[in-house]
């Protein structure tokens, strides 16, 4: 087995473990390369099927190609696709693009808060109806007690401290200083009422591994990651107003791998195009509060 086989095996094991142990399980799909690899790994684990609902938090400021890609794949792969949103903040224009909040507060409204309330079932969920080929209100409102997330340990400091199965209390907060032990492929799969568990099958993957795997498996990826001729491409995807492309000539997966290996990007942080990270406290502050 090479290093990709080993990473795949570990992720598949974790996904199957989660599916076995959690009744109300979902998987977050941000449309980015990592969670798309995660989705592919679910098809590996369950022999072509994805028996877990996918949840996307729609800020309504995503780059339009992302949403088009999401819905195309959802229909093609027969996914149980659900989205949630912060309707109140959008209607009240409490967002950064509206000029009424800073970036961090905007993230908190449109992502953290929307995620929290969508997972808990307090706010409406919308489900892709495969007959009608559009979203309809979902009548299932039970809280999700297991949430599969595609974070990687190499992304930045706080993510390097995550466990594969990471408990959160009912307020979604993460007690970094007091995490359960995890060893020998035995994870925290028992949890007290009122808590839920975040599951991280991609923890040991690096950005390069993700692209190597996309190449090997020929996984369809949203075109924003590639230079379409203008000499720029996105390295990390988010909301249009806060995400900038990087200068890069790479037009294909192969060229991205070569670019990563060449060291041209070695000294640029992966999320350097993500403006909210640069504000005070940045990602760690957001993560403690339930951000992915």
């Amino acid at each position: 087995m090479n290093h990709l086989d080993k990473l795949e095996a570990q992720s598949v094991y974790i996904l199957r473990e989660a599916y076995r142990e959690f009744k109300n399980l979902c998987m977050l799909w941000s449309i980015g390369k990592d969670s798309t690899v995660l989705l592919w790994l679910a098809r590996k684990a369950f022999f072509g099927h994805v028996p877990i609902p996918l949840v996307h938090i729609d800020t309504h400021y995503k780059i339009p190609e992302m949403i088009a890609y999401r819905d195309r794949v959802a229909l093609e792969w027969n996914l149980n696709m659900i989205y949630g949103e912060n309707r109140a903040a959008l209607d009240a224009r409490q967002t950064f693009p509206d000029g009424n909040t800073d970036r961090i507060v905007c993230c908190r409204h449109l992502k953290s808060e929307a995620l929290k309330r969508t997972l808990s079932g307090e706010w409406p969920r919308y489900r892709m109806d495969h007959e009608l080929k559009r979203y309809v209100p979902d009548d299932k409102r039970e809280p999700f007690t297991g949430v599969i997330v595609g974070v990687r340990a190499d992304e930045e400091g706080s993510r390097s401290k995550e466990r594969y199965f990471s408990p959160r209390d009912s307020a979604n907060s993460w007690d970094v200083g007091d995490q359960p032990p995890e060893f020998w492929n035995q994870f925290k799969t028992d949890f007290a009422p009122g808590t839920h568990v975040r599951i991280h099958p991609l923890l040991d993957w690096t950005e390069l591994n993700i692209w190597e795997y996309i190449e090997r498996e020929n996984i369809p990826i949203v075109s924003l990651y590639f230079n379409q001729g203008g000499g720029t491409r996105y390295r990390s995807l988010g909301c249009a107003p806060c995400t900038n492309p990087i200068e890069s000539p790479s037009r294909t997966v192969r060229e991205i791998i070569e670019e990563l290996e060449s060291g041209l990007l070695a000294n640029v942080a992966e999320r350097s195009g993500r403006a909210q990270d640069k504000e005070d406290g940045g990602l760690e502050t957001l993560r403690r509060d339930g951000y992915m």
Binding site: A153, D154, G157, S158, S160, K161, G177, T206, E284
Partner: peptide, 18 residues
Amino acid sequence: ALKDEQAQGITIDTARCF
């Protein structure tokens, strides 16, 4: 990397470096 740690000067969890 985490604030807690720098405050206390001890590693409180298992960090991974590549």
